[in-house]
Structure formats: structure tokens, C-alpha cells
């Protein structure tokens, strides 16, 4: 009863119990959702660490050489490129 891998390739025999089919469908659906269903706490932790790492850089602000560059390029009268 365990068709395992390829649900689509082999349509179940006519009298295969509906239950199997439904189960397979249900399983596919849960698995798809399962991707998302990581658990709030886990997601929160991942998000927190991710932002922590990112914000370390963000909090460094605009490096001086980049600030200078942008101002220089945008203040001059003739074209940039």
C-alpha cells in the first residue's frame, strides 16, 4: 500500500481503496505545508540571528569613502558617466 515515490505515474487500480489515494493526497498537502510549518519558535530564532548579523553591518552606517564618493558624483555639474 505504500506507493512511496511517484504518485502520479501510476494511477491506482480502479478498486484500490479511496483511502490510499486520499492519504497520498493528504500527505502531499501536509508536506507542502510542512515546508512552512517550522514552528514559530524556530522561525523566530532564525529570524533573530539573521537580523542580528545583518544589522551589525547596517549599524556601521555609510563608510566615509562611499559617502564622499556619492557626494562628489552628485555635486559636480557635468555628467557622471
Amino acid at each position: 500500500m505504500n506507493t512511496g515515490k511517484t504518485v502520479n505515474l501510476q494511477p491506482p487500480p480502479a478498486n484500490a481503496d479511496k483511502a490510499d489515494e486520499l492519504e497520498a493526497m493528504g500527505k502531499a498537502a501536509t508536506q507542502r505545508k510542512g515546508e512552512v510549518r517550522l514552528g514559530r519558535e524556530v522561525q523566530a530564532r532564525i529570524g533573530q540571528q539573521l537580523r542580528g548579523m545583518y544589522d551589525e553591518v547596517v549599524n556601521q552606517g555609510v563608510p566615509k569613502h562611499i559617502d564622499d564618493l556619492v557626494r562628489r558624483l552628485t555635486d559636480q555639474d557635468d555628467g557622471v558617466a
Binding site: 553591518v57 556601521q60 562611499i66 559617502d67 556619492v70 552628485t74 555628467g79 557622471v80
Partner: peptide
Amino acid sequence: MKLDPAIRDQVLATVPSLRAF
């Protein structure tokens, strides 16, 4: 080029996040 300072500020404001990315 003379750029609208408001646009320039938008660019600068994006730099920290752009760097992190």
C-alpha cells in the same frame, strides 16, 4: 551631475543595508 539632494539622500540611506546584502 547635479542631483536632487532628496534622491541623493535616498541613495545614501540605502547604503548600509546594501552593504549588508
